[in-house]
Design a protein around this nucleic acid. Sequence first.
DNA 1: CGTGCATTTGACCACCTTCAATAAAGGTGG
DNA 2: CCACCTTTATTGAAGGTGGTCAAATGCACG
Lengths: 252, 252
Amino acid sequence: MNSMNEIRSVPNSTQEDRSCELCVNSCKTCISRQVSICSVLEDNEIHLVSSISKINLKPAKQVICNEGETANYLYNINHGCVRISKTLPDGRRQIIGFLFPGEFFGLARDNGYDYSAEFITNVELCQMPINKIFAMFSKFPKLGHKMLEITRTELQITQDQMLLLGRKTAKEKLCSFLIAMQQKSKQLKDIKENHVYLPMSRSDIADHLGLTIETVSRQFTILGKDGIISLGENPFVEILDRKHLKLIASGE
Amino acid sequence: MNSMNEIRSVPNSTQEDRSCELCVNSCKTCISRQVSICSVLEDNEIHLVSSISKINLKPAKQVICNEGETANYLYNINHGCVRISKTLPDGRRQIIGFLFPGEFFGLARDNGYDYSAEFITNVELCQMPINKIFAMFSKFPKLGHKMLEITRTELQITQDQMLLLGRKTAKEKLCSFLIAMQQKSKQLKDIKENHVYLPMSRSDIADHLGLTIETVSRQFTILGKDGIISLGENPFVEILDRKHLKLIASGE
DNA sequence: CGTGCATTTGACCACCTTCAATAAAGGTGG
DNA sequence: CCACCTTTATTGAAGGTGGTCAAATGCACG
């Protein structure tokens, strides 16, 4: 059992209005305040964001938005893990990415979300109306610049993922994934050095890497037998030979 | 032989200074002026871009930038086709995309290009210093907004490509590719209805779809035998049964 | 007409998938 | 807290899609 899955006791779904002094203060301790779009705003400007945003607490395995659905909100993740995915008509699924605290999602085109988003763990989200955020761009150009920077970074990561999906072997894919997830794990509290936090299922990993569950499981076993990782207590994996792992991930 | 490959007689590589009345006028007929970032500027503002940009004419098969190289310029494509790619140390290559007139590339992070760019055909490029374009953002916020919009669209296309690479079969991949390339072909002049312009090699297509040349070739043959396409005069393919092609592309 | 490169086609092979069985983990109610 | 059931993960065996290797064909260009 993992403390990160238990942010607080999560009822079924709650919303908390933030247009109050108290909630402006909550921005001060928010992870997104440090890295997401809100990071570019000064302390005396942040109330403009908190006044239009709402905090959502949601239990695991819920859907927050579906591909194609009208896009009204941007979401900052404050706690928990979200998976972003696209699916083909017959159900084949590609997970675009796993998002952790400080990351945001919800940008859409033609008013429709490009992907579905679901909670892997219990999640605390900060929900912001897209149109209001965009309206703030004229007064705070730095908000737009930050969003461009984040989108550009996202694009780069996605292009790297194209290389992975198109040209890497199953083993290389899993190693790359573990390296990437360790980077994200570092941002989280209470994660031991050399440990990777993997709250998602084998099926999620498979659908992210363009493989089947079985292949993912087999590769995990092989990496374990080779002494590169240690499959200890779920949902964690320990990296024993980081140098070797990176070597495989980069394609020898 | 294809007229589109022969924009003009291209020496080895030429540059043309645009800080003159004549060149401002050339913006008026430029395709990028209609769709790329310059499209948001008024006629009386465009000289600010043309004064800092240079027109490059380059012959086919040349490299314009390499992955990791210091990024100083953004490039608008005025004529021709460019391929954007990433490679693994052992040479395995993933082509991120093929760019046509009106599209731009060169956005980078940490000052290094994320990918390599090479000319597939003879190309005419409009070269703009990145820092000067970014400096214009404060005076013309709409430039930044347009760039965000383009980057966002690019991100969406790349995410679609993830679904293709991770979850589609060889046949579905090629059909999706043909559909996408037909959309791009429509923007070009002198392309017949239902014809797709494919200036790139089989090897380029393979590296874009995560396949081998042989598989791409075989799938072309199959689509031809099934009467879905007609492999006529290079570098063109005719679509005979668009409905069927789209059906396969979307995953049945 | 001959050389060189790209593409097509064929035969065989391998990596990953599919199918199937077992084991482990998680959730619910008594 | 444990029995029971469901879900998820692991492992094994067999099969297929796409890859590898090799040869043939086509095409551009001198």
